[in-house]
Design a protein around this nucleic acid. Structure first.
Lengths: 250, 250
DNA sequence: CGCCTTCTTGATCGAATTCAAGGAATGTGG
DNA sequence: CCACATTCCTTGAATTCGATCAAGAAGGCG
């Protein structure tokens, strides 16, 4: 495990240079609004594996993921665990207007958060429609994602579930790529087999078996345990049970 | 099937007398804001079984359920369907800022909707923070509900799933009851076995069997197919795998 | 009455879980 | 540098829970 993330990112820096400036909760803010946000923001870094927030904890901040990946999980008393969200850069953490955290938030990779003190942020939300509007938009998107995931959890087979998860990673990866033209996608799985299982409502053994099966059938290529190549994205989407073309709702 | 819902409700009437006045998207509106809303609202009635909105359809309105129950469902090409939401009185339908409907919306009972023409409503949202604030709050609640349901779909057994669904009905019913003191709850199931199966990611046979099992074990009583008595709510919650006490997050 | 739709129950089957063992990669301390 | 531990992953065998296939019961309604 990396002992220290480069600390530069955790030092204060300008919103203007921020990598998530145009996708995060602050996306619609004007220059003066950004300046007000700068007053109440601070950065925090977390190591891979660290729990940022425990379900039930008092929350004194909300914020945005700047870099890295975190998971949102729910756990039953007997230990059964379900991941209910995957937090990627620009995603929002916390719920304005509520004190207790509803889920565990765990850093899957090293992570940097841009945090806002909760009370001042809530006050700003009342005064700054641009923030509330953007938060509503993001929340509606998350709701759609959650509902799409309900279909995955409730009705898809293990093989389709794995293909669906890989599609998410692939789609995300494609959106970061400059060259969209070529159909071949390459990325590293950001989750362990167990974390994938928790996302998909499966056991880690089933995840492992289905990944092996997709590999054997040529739907994916695997180098090592994490490095994935998708030779044919539409083939993967077919395996996921989605309609041929991405299926991104406008 | 009832041929006609009493038509009185579908005629224009004052927001002030509205049964969902304090829970719907208009909950925070002042008198003058309500008057503006009255200008763009109209009522529509639907019969049980009718599809209000088809996934992919152009949406020219958004609105609130005034009375009755509707479901939000997603369907795969091969016919597998997953219910992704249950719309009860005061719940909001439609997504401001998007043209196409993402899900089928089907009336489970006779239903009355308070509709707002979409464009004027979107304009009002920009000008009326009270509406946007309330919509954000409601959307965050729905997101929490969707995530709780992900746990149900991903990790609970068939028996726990049924108990969880019954708990939702019971909880909702309890909130409408005057006398909260007594532990015994009585209500009619608002869904067919098939609709319950679609909500829970099960088959209707499994739903039927698990309901029979819960009946045999005295967790519920059944009169006819739909009329349910819960003699002991905490017993039911235990069967649902939730922590003993309601588990409503503050 | 017979015809729907909705629901129940039984028998069988199969996909995913559970239980179990071991492999691969990485790190640690002698 | 090697023995050993740890974490993450894979694979096999047995089991089980829910699905599927099938038949018939219970109402509601023309």
């Amino acid at each position: 495990m990396n002992m220290l993330k480069e600390p530069s990112l955790s030092n204060p820096h300008d919103c203007v240079d921020c990598p998530i400036r145009h996708r995060a909760v602050c996306a619609r803010c004007e220059t003066d609004e950004l300046e007000a946000l700068e007053q109440i923001k601070y950065y925090r870094s977390f190591q891979a594996g660290q729990t940022l927030i425990w379900s039930g904890d008092q929350m004194d901040f909300v914020g945005s993921v700047v870099s890295g990946i975190a998971t949102l999980t729910q756990t039953m008393e007997d230990g059964r665990t379900q991941m209910v969200g995957l937090l990627l850069p620009s995603d929002f953490v916390g719920r304005p207007g509520r004190d207790g955290a509803a889920y565990d938030v765990v850093a899957t990779t090293d992570l940097v958060m841009c945090c806002f003190r909760k009370k001042p942020f809530e006050r700003m939300m009342m005064e700054t429609p641009h923030i509330a509007q953007r938060l509503l938009e993001m929340t509606l998107d998350e709701l759609d994602a959650a509902r799409e995931w309900m279909l995955v959890l409730g009705r898809k087979t293990a093989r389709e579930k794995i293909a669906s998860l890989l599609s998410i990673f692939a789609r995300r990866d494609a959106s970061l790529k400059v060259d969209v033209s070529k159909d071949t996608l390459v990325f590293d799985l950001p989750l362990t087999r167990e974390a994938m299982a928790d996302y998909l409502g499966l056991t880690l053994e089933t995840v492992s078996r289905q990944i092996s099966a997709l590999k054997k059938d040529g739907v994916i290529h695997l180098e090592g345990k994490r490095h994935v190549t998708i030779p044919n994205l539409s083939r993967l989407l077919e395996e996921a049970g989605d309609d041929a073309d991405g299926g991104i709702m406008v």
